[in-house]
Amino acid sequence: MENMVNIFLFGKKYSVPENLTIMRAMEYAGYQLVRGCGCRNGFCGACATIYRIKGDRELKVCLACQTKVEEGMYIATLPFFPLVKQVFDIEKVKPTDMVMMQLYPEIYACIGCNACTKSCTQGLNVMQYIAYAQRGDFEACAEESFDCVMCGVCSSRCPAGISHPQVAMLARRLNGKYLAPETGHLNDRVKEIKDGTFEELLQNLMQKPIDEMKELYNNREIEK
C-alpha cells in the first residue's frame, strides 16, 4: 500500500496517497472535477489553489495540477477570480504609456507590497512587470510576464485591485504587434504567394503519382 497523508479539502478530511498532486488527490477522494481543471499540466491556469499547512501561519498558493499533497494541507481551490479585462481595438491602440493610463489606471496605485510576486504560481516577478507597464516599457513587461498562465492568484492578493495578467496581456500584444521588429522575409513570402509564384509547382505536386512523390520525399535534401 502507498504511504498515505491526511489532507483537508474545503475543510473536510481525506486520506490520500502521498505522491499524488492536489488535483489527482481530489479525484482520488471522489471529486469529478468540472471547474478548476483544464490542461492538467501547468499551462492554462485553471487550477489556482490556496492552502495552509496545519500549524503554519503562512498562506500558500499553487497550481493544483503541479503540486504534490503534504500532510496537514488545508486546501481551497480558486477556480475563478474576477479579473478586470478592458476591451480595446488592437488596430487602434498605440504603444505609448497613455494606453495604460486609459485602460488600467489602477496600476499607478500600486503600493509596492510585493504580494503579487510572492504569490505567483509561476515564480514570476509580477511587481516588476507592473512597474515596467507603468513606465510604458512594454517590451520589458512582455518579457518579464511571458510565462504567465493568467491564473489570477496575484490579483486575489492585490490591495490595489490590479488585474496583473490582463495588464501583461495588453503589453505583450502591443509588443508583438508594434514594437518587435518587422519580418521582411515573411512579408516577401506572403506577397510571392499572392502573386502565384508557387502555384504551378504546387499544382504539379498535387497531380503527381504516389511513386514519384515517394522519390521526391526519400531523396529530398535536408538542411543541416
Binding site: 511571458f146 505583450r172 500584444r173 502591443l174 509588443n175 504587434k177 519580418t183
Partner: peptide, 13 residues
C-alpha cells in the same frame, strides 16, 4: 494580432 514570435534583432524569425 500581437503574437510574440521568437525573432532576431533584425526581425528574422
Amino acid at each position: 494580432l500581437g503574437v510574440e514570435f521568437d525573432k532576431m534583432p533584425d526581425g528574422t524569425m
